[in-house]
């Protein structure tokens, strides 16, 4: 799985912002993760505990905000939240759909001690 390089990215970004803020340490990270981004929280957490050890982020807690996938029907304009299964528009049956939410994967903010 590719969670290791991804976790390294998260660490890099957090350390950069912590240094800019002249932080002594980072206590928490707030991540926003869309349902469609195929990120496994547990593996991120697993790698995080290992790679953050000797950094400004040692011991920082990871908070995951999950964003459900929302689709907009390009035929009738109906918007709906995707359940576990892929599905056509429940209103008109069209398969012409646009993803309007659920692809997010970003670091929203960090909590630091200065």
């Amino acid at each position: 799985m590719h969670e290791l390089p991804i976790t390294e990215n998260i660490l890099d970004i957090a350390v950069t912002y912590a240094q800019q803020a002249s932080a002594k340490r980072v206590t928490a990270l707030h991540l926003v993760v869309g349902q469609l981004s195929s990120i496994v929280d547990d593996s991120i957490q697993f790698y995080w505990d290992i790679i953050s050890k000797d950094t400004l982020c040692a011991g920082a807690t990871l908070h995951f905000e999950r964003i459900p996938a929302r689709l907009e029907c390009q035929e009738c304009g109906h918007t709906y939240t995707l359940s576990r299964e892929l599905m056509v528009c429940p209103q008109c049956g069209s398969a012409r759909l646009k993803v309007i939410a659920g692809e997010e994967f970003r670091l929203e903010s960090i909590e630091v001690e200065t």
């Binding site: 990215n9 998260i10 970004i13 957090a14 994967f105 970003r106 670091l107 929203e108 903010s109 001690e113």
Partner: peptide, 16 residues
């Protein structure tokens, strides 16, 4: 003192 630092950066931005 503790504070919140806004980041709002895409995790994959380095790769991108």
């Amino acid at each position: 003192m503790s504070k919140i630092v806004p980041v709002v950066q895409e995790i994959m931005s380095a790769n991108d």
